[in-house]
Design a protein around this nucleic acid. Structure first.
Length: 563
RNA sequence: UGGGGUGUCGCCAAGGGGUAAGGCACGGGUCUUUGGAACCCGCAUUCGGAGGUUCGAAUCCUCCCACCCCAGCCA
């Protein structure tokens, strides 16, 4: 049962599937797959693909496999395999017993290659890599055929087997499909199917020294797994004729490749290259830095799987290149956490407030609501006393007209506490900075209501100084200062747009005592401030909170309008 | 000057001959012990451009323009 007010948009892939179901193609099955290469960490762009593939399977009562596309042993490893599994699971998807590896198909793939050789559709080429490039031609000129293109089937078979046996050094030979060196689509100009790499594979060890390429492997892996709809990104559109060619020539089960536009987000980058630079050059602290758009980064930041899935659904699926406003992602996490996160009073930039007429050693336990959106979450007690901390921003000596927080002579409500009126201000004699605010309180307003019905314009949050626990708060901002990081000028260095203020650390901030045992990864709304998540850097002595996202700030907008 | 794609509101995105959904953002308002949330209202006479077909075109046809991808033994 869904409580959402919008419905997931239709998309062209569902149209295709609906058609296939109607015409009985694939016996009414829907079987997709998410095929990551285990050479890096997953990011929000992958999440789009994961949600699409697993989501489609779910929606059509089908299946979705997790398949590692591990055909390049130079860059792939077990660590990434584990990390990817973790991330997909954390996002909330289940491949059940269907985790596969392209490397499991190596022997079968080899046999398919032999079959193509026998059919005269593949040959061993002995041109050097440079020569192959030259022979390929250009975008506007046709390529030319390799002098080795017409070797006999027997010779090809012998050579290919010798390649497998490790008789040649890397680069000496490759196996190529025999298609058409003059084809207008460069991918069809006798693409490489196998190359020699004397490199152990993290799964097959030293069993192989020749490895199949993506084009040859992917379509056949899909075929072997009886995938119905093989969904990939736009840059593979040009490869579809090749995908189809291998399957047609081999006369095997033939899935359909469908391409969609990959995700781009404002104020961040999603390419493996840029992300690696951020990590390797120390602009962030690692792949799970809360500023990173990686799944691990978002998770550490405090994003929920639900919010990420909601986001992936809302952005839609189409073929047009686009850059989604990161404000939508922020909206999704706010909406999710508003309903689920318990509230807490935490002062980020403390200013001391003394209630002159409050009894010296008195402490009251005031009742606070844990989540006004969900009464079932109950209430808690918050200690109140003579000396409090309030937010610096909640006091102004000379307030503008629209300001309705604390100021000399003004009365405000302390949330769940009392009405207080500012009667005096203590300043640092040197700097003139306000260091303390003196107030009087109205004992009749306990809990925040006045029996005389007198209204107060502002409600501010506070923490009792004696009971406060000092915590560290990390405020994050966008990683980049430029919204569109996709369309940079030619030869423009993306580093020049790195936001130097993407992280601000605040300490000490003062939190209400109930937060003392907050477990890592638990999330709270700090009232009037934002949503926060306990970081694993926390120690029993010092809790660390990451700001996931701020609350919508109407006051900030008003201020902006005035300035 | 090759091939493959894409162009609908500031950002996403439906709609595919019957007279422009929705979300985010933005603006205004109601309410409020979070300047939060919720709720209400507003927000494309117009669909890259120009012609054409038609009673009627974002949808069909023609031409043009812009942008993206492809010359790894990466995926």
């Amino acid at each position: 049962m869904s409580t959402r007010k919008y419905s997931p948009p239709p998309n062209f892939i569902k149209d295709i599937i609906d058609d296939d179901l109607r015409t009985g193609k694939y016996e009414g099955r829907v079987h997709t797959r998410f095929p990551p290469e285990p050479n890096g960490y997953l990011h929000i762009g992958h999440a789009k693909s994961i949600c699409l593939n697993f989501g489609l399977a779910e929606e059509y009562n089908g299946k979705c496999n997790l398949r590692f596309d591990d055909t390049n042993p130079e860059t792939e490893n077990e660590e990434f395999v584990k990390a990817i599994q973790e991330d997909v699971k954390w996002l909330g998807f289940d491949w059940e017993d269907r985790m596969y590896f392209a490397s499991d198909y190596f022997e079968q793939l080899y046999q398919y290659a032999v079959e193509l050789i026998k059919k005269g559709k593949a040959y061993v080429d002995s041109l050097s890599p440079e020569e192959i490039r030259e022979y390929r031609g250009t975008l506007t000129e046709p390529g030319k055929e390799s002098p080795y293109r017409n070797r006999s089937v027997e010779e090809n078979l012998e050579l290919f087997e010798a390649m497998r046996r490790g008789k040649f050094p890397e680069g000496a030979h490759v196996l190529r499909a025999k298609i058409d060196m003059a084809h207008p689509n460069l991918n069809m100009r006798d693409p490489v199917m196998y190359r020699i790499k004397h490199v152990p594979h993290y799964r097959t060890g030293t069993q192989w020294c020749i490895y199949p390429t993506y084009d040859f492997t992917h379509c056949l892996s899909d075929s072997i797994e009886r995938i119905t709809h093989s969904i990939c990104t736009l840059e593979f559109e040009d490869h579809r004729p090749l995908y189809d060619w291998f399957l047609d020539e081999l006369e095997v089960y033939h899935p359909r490749q469908i391409e969609f536009a990959r995700l781009n987000l404002t104020y961040t980058v999603l390419s493996k290259r840029y992300l690696s630079i951020l990590v390797n050059e120390g602009y962030v602290k690692g792949w799970d830095d809360p500023r990173m758009p990686t799944i691990r980064g978002l998770r550490r930041r405090g994003y929920t799987p639900e919010a990420i899935r909601d986001f992936c659904e809302r952005i839609g699926v189409a073929k047009r290149n686009s850059i989604v406003d990161i404000a939508l992602l922020e909206h999704c996490i706010r909406e999710d956490l508003n309903k689920r996160a318990p509230r807490a009073l935490v002062v980020l930039n403390p200013l001391k407030l003394v209630i002159l007429n409050y009894p010296e050693n008195q402490v009251e336990e005031l009742e606070a609501v844990n989540n006004p959106e969900d009464p079932a979450m109950g209430t808690r007690k918050v200690p109140f006393s003579k000396v409090l901390y309030i937010e610096r921003d909640d006091f102004m000596e000379n307030p503008p007209s629209k300001y309705y927080r604390l100021a000399p002579g003004r009365e405000v409500r302390l949330r769940y506490g009392y009405y207080v009126t500012c009667v005096d201000v203590i300043k640092d004699p040197g700097s003139g900075e306000v260091v303390e605010v003196h107030c009087t309180y109205d004992p009749a307003t306990r809990g925040g209501w006045s029996p005389d019905g007198r209204k107060v314009k502002g409600t501010i949050h506070w923490v009792s100084a004696d009971h406060a626990i000092p915590v560290e708060v990390r405020l994050y901002d966008h990683l980049f200062t430029k919204a569109d990081m996709v369309n940079l000028e030619e030869d423009e260095d993306f580093r020049k747009y790195i936001n130097p203020d993407s992280l601000r650390i605040l300490y000490p901030c003062y939190a209400e005592p109930s937060l003392a045992n907050a477990p890592v990864e638990s999330r709270y709304q700090f009232e009037r401030v934002g949503y926060f998540c306990v970081d694993p850097d926390s120690t029993p002595e010092r809790l660390v909170f990451n700001r996931i996202v701020g609350l919508r700030d109407t006051w900030a907008k008003i201020q902006k309008k005035f300035s």
